[in-house]
Design a protein around this nucleic acid. Sequence first.
DNA 1: GTGGTCTAGACCACG
DNA 2: GTGGTCTAGACCACC
Lengths: 131, 131, 131, 131
Amino acid sequence: MHVHVDAHNGIPIYEQIARQVKYSVASGALQVGEHVPSVREMAGRLAVNPNTVARAYRDLQADGVLLPIRGTGLSITPQAVELCLEERLDLIRGRLRSALAEGRQAGMDADELRTLVEEELSQLAAAEVNP
Amino acid sequence: MHVHVDAHNGIPIYEQIARQVKYSVASGALQVGEHVPSVREMAGRLAVNPNTVARAYRDLQADGVLLPIRGTGLSITPQAVELCLEERLDLIRGRLRSALAEGRQAGMDADELRTLVEEELSQLAAAEVNP
Amino acid sequence: MHVHVDAHNGIPIYEQIARQVKYSVASGALQVGEHVPSVREMAGRLAVNPNTVARAYRDLQADGVLLPIRGTGLSITPQAVELCLEERLDLIRGRLRSALAEGRQAGMDADELRTLVEEELSQLAAAEVNP
Amino acid sequence: MHVHVDAHNGIPIYEQIARQVKYSVASGALQVGEHVPSVREMAGRLAVNPNTVARAYRDLQADGVLLPIRGTGLSITPQAVELCLEERLDLIRGRLRSALAEGRQAGMDADELRTLVEEELSQLAAAEVNP
DNA sequence: GTGGTCTAGACCACG
DNA sequence: GTGGTCTAGACCACC
């Protein structure tokens, strides 16, 4: 699994780690039952304090994504995939909703918003073929 | 002008205030040359620490939206309307973009995203006629 | 509110703190909307590291018992009372259930278990009048 | 003798093993003088680290339940039955006591607690006929 | 003043 | 080896 953190983007490091673990689960890069990299290893990889990784993993346990196996490590729970996919969709929906609501409140009608969406979709498509 | 802050939503209060001043300018509720309520009055109205209002106003000055008039108060600058409209559009675009990009990354294609957009638009429309 | 921790009883300190906050809420010693003692004050009172108190308070936020008010402190949420009472009843039920199940499995019948319960109730009553 | 461990329930595995040995003794499944399965066999059966089984057996020796017989294995001591029965009753009593004390402290009177006990007893009875 | 994040390093229980 | 707890102390954003 690939992880990357940026200490200067304002988002807490432990949150970046937790989010990326969830992404890896949602995308299948981490399979149910598999072990997540150990706290110490992940900390070394990211050049981050082990406590920071531990906090991310602790939050993931609270979310039901990770399960501790005593003395062995942390494994992906069976429900993890569902949880992570659901959370990701909620995130997308939430951002869309707030953007569109903002537009309505600013006086745009549905067609103007659709136009905005199409503009962004084209830009995305362009960026993907020519990154 | 109508202002409202919520201490529980995670967004800094000074930012909520600044944003709402900008909204009022963008929507015409605050006209060029008009004065914004004094720090003390605004703080009283919102039941908020005056320092917090002062910080919001300071940021608005830095953004070129407010201009201090000695002994009188803070007035809306001539370029404020343009700035606020532009910023608002940028905000909407930004949220749309990040939502759509997230969806793409999660494997959705353009049509699936359009469907999501339509769902949210209908919900918005419904919420507006029956809030 | 009265709090006491014992660093040597095996239960993590942050958990002892969180539990006692919940008890105080359940018993009415802490009222909805009231602020919990600040991290630093509580840490001083208990002669414990502030991080430890912070962790307890963080867990209480995750449980929906505390709500952060930026720059001001942590307040008891409206749902806190219900949550804490419910949790306490669940705790009692759970212990009773496991004790009784254990007894059944060890071959005791319902009447033998009732006798045990009555013995413990008398001892409790005696201890309460003459602690 | 039947043994089963669960790595996910928070109770140390060596403790689960020790407890189940004691249960087997208390219930007569293991007789005085009989040998307990070897560390290696037990470890294989449970798919567990041999060190873990060794630790369980070590604790059982410290408790006077097992006695090492040079070159042969570990046998159930004569006083084991008594010890295990006693311990089991203590466990039941302790849980009952703490549950009832908790209830008293939460303001319940003896009759309310008796009602709780009856509820749990009925549930247990129901679960036993239709597990 | 408040809480939140991060680091560094010690100690422990478990396997 | 694993994760969990706790301490100490620094720095930051917010009010």
